[in-house]
Design a protein around this nucleic acid. Structure first.
Length: 884
RNA sequence: GGGCGGCUAGCUCAGCUGGUUAGAGCACUUGCUUGACAUGCAAGAGGUCACUGGUUCGAGUCCAGUGUCGCCCACCA
């Protein structure tokens, strides 16, 4: 048994314990220290791999805490519990970070070139990776580090290639020219999910386009059609003007031709149902290459679609003076020139929603590009069937609605990225334009169509969206596409725990790809956590400077406190605010537990050797307080099991917290102290008291271990163990719920009420707390034994001595004096012989009257309510018998 | 424009499938160097459960609507 230091210092406790776990090899389900029962089904959690972009934030710590809680619980229940850790290469996010670092060095992606850039990235990732893994260990993640995976490692790379080839062969991946979301800052396309709609005030300009005089073929100086636009620079790419077919203002214009200024292009005026007559001028300029709606219109009307923006969003290919200008410079220049020509018909402020890049916050430009897409509709259909059938559950359930809506309206997924850091798309093109997709590591031998040798083929320069490799995570980490023992044992994942903010980004993609590629749901349960916000409810962000560094919190209060605080305040799927107060609360609790255990260890009767093997207290020697403690522990185990089943982890912490603090410490230990010190109590009974304290503390340490693994492990080491127990709590068994003892719970509960009542009366009478007062009490026959057994404890706790037992109320009433304080605690009635105040009016009788009057009023109110209910015939006839 | 969520004590939040007198932490008041713990102990004050209507013997809990704050989705230039 280990010694416990007087003061609880998390720092000293935590580092050493993590090392012990590592040394004992208990994290891996098949590790040397595992006590798993192979006959039970395995339990798998694949960690949502954090981005290797720097360091963990509080959200990661919370994520890790919840996942680790589930894993530790499963491990203690005897399951082969695999917590598979990992890191995500985070393609675009990592490039944004590295680009910023490079910018500080006067370098850039372009200046380095692809090869050197990737070298720099590997260096960068190598350092952050170490930092991040160390952070996870500090949090206490009992992950199987031997199975650590990275989305850029060879296994992932192969999984990506094989997955893509299979999708291609199944016609679920295709390459086409389409309008994509282009981020000029990141110089890549991004998926629809990465475009953040941002409300902004822009300007709506009205621009006159001159109609072509059919006779001369030249623009008419007076006959015009006015279009409204928020992006005048796109005028350079206009290939039509559209009006609503039923719009009388423009009747007769359809079929005529207008001239686009600057590019001097003559374009048709077309009729389009989708034009909103009420908006702007009712006439819309059509720019097929730079607007989603216009693109559709362009297809319907076979319009040309000239691209007028370069990769950096400067104007290009227009053969105007604007070529080379940034899009916004060109915009103001065009407006100025329109005004000079007299073709600007006005402008006004306009509230609109602009798409910005999730990473760089640049305004996204729709652009035509030839790229790879995943055909999502059939995949989404299967994903929906999985959740509808209940084969995969989403918790909390309300997210299923969002899930349904998103998957039912899904659009094809653009997976090409014009970035460097990521998995290169395994597609090769031959000079004739044939496409060859090959998953072999070295690429294809020849063009699939024309058999040209590999040397003449060009690989696609693009890489995959980072979420493509993440989407394979639950199975790529276990060896897929090979049929490895790990894959057959630990796949599908039992619980997928993650934040609701990546439900679509990640969970939906894993579901779609998992079902298609492995033919089974990749996980049984999706457990969605909320986000952590700052004390004001703001989202934490580095730019706002309101982030909490988990390591700082751990240094200050310990990993146990951090874990407790993020789990305690959380309801599944709901955001929580996090501040110093919560951390402090948790730290105090750890300290409380430490001291309680320290007391128990120190209270061992001298007759029990320090290295004694744990004995279950003999029933005959158990007093009511001991039976009460054991029964309350059984109740707590039962309640905790229920909360665990519901994934209500906040409830788990509340239950254990209350049991330990309000029951075990406040009453259990206080009652036991008296008995342990009482020489008149038989030795066996005192030993039984101590063994009960040990037994119940042991139970609570087990229940709390998944939440606060370090302090519980440390304290457990100081308690005597059973012969069947392993050396470490982490692999000890979860407690079975024992039998309840209703008699003890009721009886001890009544005496606790009596103590409270006496304390209350004493406090109101402003008596010195230290003074011992004589108290007489009426004890109902049923409570007699319990009262006698606990009399010394009640005396001490209530500072009541002598505590005389009066069997009848009459006997008590007969001796009541004007200076006595009356106490009613349920069935127990007591008189505190306070001996204060000679004057009945200002002394105790006044106090009695006031207090008892209040209590009487409450009781009568309750009684009246109860009588009313019972008098109500429909209540009696309809309410269940138990309630009546 | 759709959808979802929050609104419970001064603050942060629990309250599961409706059932006696709605809870916790922090803050507050009054006392305590009580031999595990002042990171603590004891006692206390504090709530028309956002609002309106309904269902029910009974509603914080279920239904309808309103307000308010927030989130997600959505192609109106």
């Amino acid at each position: 048994m280990a010694e416990l230091s007087k003061a609880y210092t998390p720092k000293d406790v935590e580092g050493a314990i993590y090392e012990r776990w590592l040394a004992a090899d208990v994290f891996a389900p098949d590790g040397a220290g595992s006590t798993a029962d192979p006959s039970l089904p395995p339990f798998t959690i694949t960690q949502p791999p954090p981005n290797v972009t720097g360091s963990l934030h509080l959200g990661h710590a919370q994520r890790t805490a919840v996942e680790d809680l589930m894993i530790r619980h499963a491990r203690m229940r005897g399951h082969r519990a695999l917590f598979l850790p990992g890191l995500d290469h985070a393609s675009i996010a990592a490039q944004v970070v590295l680009d910023r670092i490079l910018a500080g060095e006067g370098e850039s992606r372009q200046s380095l070139g692809r090869e050197r850039y990737l070298e720099r990235m590997l260096e960068f990732v190598e350092t952050t990776r170490g930092v991040m893994l160390a952070q996870q260990r500090r949090v206490g993640a009992s992950a199987d580090w031997g199975r650590l995976r990275f989305t850029m490692d060879d296994g992932s790379a192969r999984a990506v290639r094989v997955a893509f080839e299979r999708l291609f062969r199944a016609d679920l991946a295709y390459r086409t020219e389409a309008l994509v979301n282009w981020c000029p800052g990141c110089r890549t396309s991004v998926s629809d999910l990465e475009v953040v709609p941002t409300p902004e005030t822009g300007t709506l300009w009205n621009v006159r386009y001159h109609l072509i005089d059919p006779k001369t073929g030249e623009p008419d100086p007076t006959e015009t059609i006015t279009v409204a636009t928020t992006r005048p620079e796109t005028i350079l790419g206009d290939t039509a003007v559209a009006v609503h077919p039923g719009d009388e203002r423009h009747a007769g214009l359809v079929g005529r031709v207008a001239r686009i200024p600057f590019v001097e292009r003559d374009v048709p005026i077309i009729a389009e149902e989708r034009v909103d007559r009420a908006f702007g001028t009712g006439a819309v300029k059509i720019t097929p290459a730079h607007d989603r709606d216009d693109y559709e219109t362009g297809l319907r009307h076979s319009l040309p679609a000239p691209t007028i923006l370069a990769d950096d969003a400067s104007v290009a290919n227009t053969e105007t003076v604007f070529d080379g200008m940034d899009r916004y410079v060109a915009r103001s220049e065009i407006v100025a020139q329109l005004e000079a020509r007299g073709d600007l018909a006005g402008s006004k402020d306009h509230e609109m929603v602009i798409g910005r890049c999730q990473r760089s916050h640049d305004v996204i430009e729709p652009r035509l590009k030839t790229q790879w897409f995943i055909r999502t509709t059939p995949l989404a259909e299967r994903a929906l069937m999985s959740t509808r059938s209940g084969r995969t559950r989403i918790l909390p359930e309300r997210f299923e609605k969002t899930w349904e809506h998103w998957l039912a309206n899904i659009r094809d997924w653009n997976v090409s990225r014009q970035l460097w850091w990521g998995h290169r798309i395994p597609a090769w093109y031959c000079p004739d334009g044939h496409v060859t997709v090959a998953s072999a590591e070295g690429g294809p031998d020849a063009c699939e169509v024309c058999a040209r040798p590999a040397a003449e083929l060009q690989q696609d320069p693009d890489i995959f969206d980072t979420w493509f490799s993440s989407g394979l995570w639950p199975f790529s980490t276990l060896g897929w596409p090979d049929d490895t023992p790990d894959l057959s044992t630990y796949y599908p994942t039992t619980v997928m725990e993650t934040g609701y903010d990546i439900l679509f980004f990640w969970v939906a993609r894993m579901m779609m790809l998992g079902l298609e590629l492995t033919d089974v749901e990749p996980f049984h349960t999706v457990c969605l956590s909320g986000l952590i916000r700052d004390p004001e409810g703001q989202k934490m962000s580095k730019t706002k400077g309101n982030t909490v560094d988990p390591l700082g919190a751990i240094d200050e209060s310990g990993a146990d406190a951090l874990r407790f605080s993020v789990i305690h305040g959380a309801t599944p799927g709901n955001d929580q605010r996090f501040g110093a107060a919560k951390l402090e609360h948790a730290r105090n609790f750890a300290n409380k537990l430490w001291n309680a255990a320290r007391y128990v260890v120190g209270a061992r009767p001298a007759t029990i050797p320090a290295d004694a093997e744990r004995r279950l207290p003999a029933g005959a020697h158990l007093g009511p307080a001991e039976r009460w403690l054991l029964s309350r522990a059984a109740a707590t185990v039962e309640a905790v099991d229920g909360a665990m089943t519901d994934h209500a982890f906040g409830e788990v912490t509340r239950l254990v917290y209350d049991a330990i603090w309000s029951e075990y410490c406040d009453w259990g230990l206080e009652l036991a102290k008296v008995r342990l010190a009482d020489e008149t109590v038989p030795l066996e009974a005192r030993e039984a008291t101590w063994w009960t304290l040990v037994e119940v503390l042991d139970t609570y340490l087990r229940l709390l271990h998944p939440v606060m693994p370090f302090v519980t492990e440390a304290l457990w080491a100081s308690l005597p163990h059973r012969a069947s127990d392993p050396d470490l709590l982490i692999v000890a068994r979860w407690p079975a719920s024992g039998a309840r003892d209703a008699t003890a719970e009721v009886a001890v509960g009544a005496l606790i009420e009596l103590v409270r009542g006496i304390r209350n009366a004493r406090a109101e009478a402003k008596l010195e707390p230290a003074r011992w007062l004589p108290v007489d009490v009426v004890v109902p026959v049923g409570l007699g034994t319990t009262f006698e057994a606990l009399r010394p404890a009640v005396e001490r706790l209530a500072r009541a001595r002598p505590l005389e037992r009066r069997l009848t109320r009459e006997a008590l009433a007969a001796t009541a004096g004007p200076t006595d304080l009356a106490v009613i605690a349920g069935e127990l009635e007591a008189l505190v012989r306070a001996g204060v105040g000679g004057d009945p009016a200002s002394g105790s009788s006044a106090l009695n009257r006031a207090r008892l009057g209040r209590e009487l009023a409450e009781a009568e109110e309750w009684l009246a309510a109860a009588r009313d209910r019972l008098a109500n015939e429909s209540f009696i006839s309809r309410a269940p018998a138990a309630v009546v």
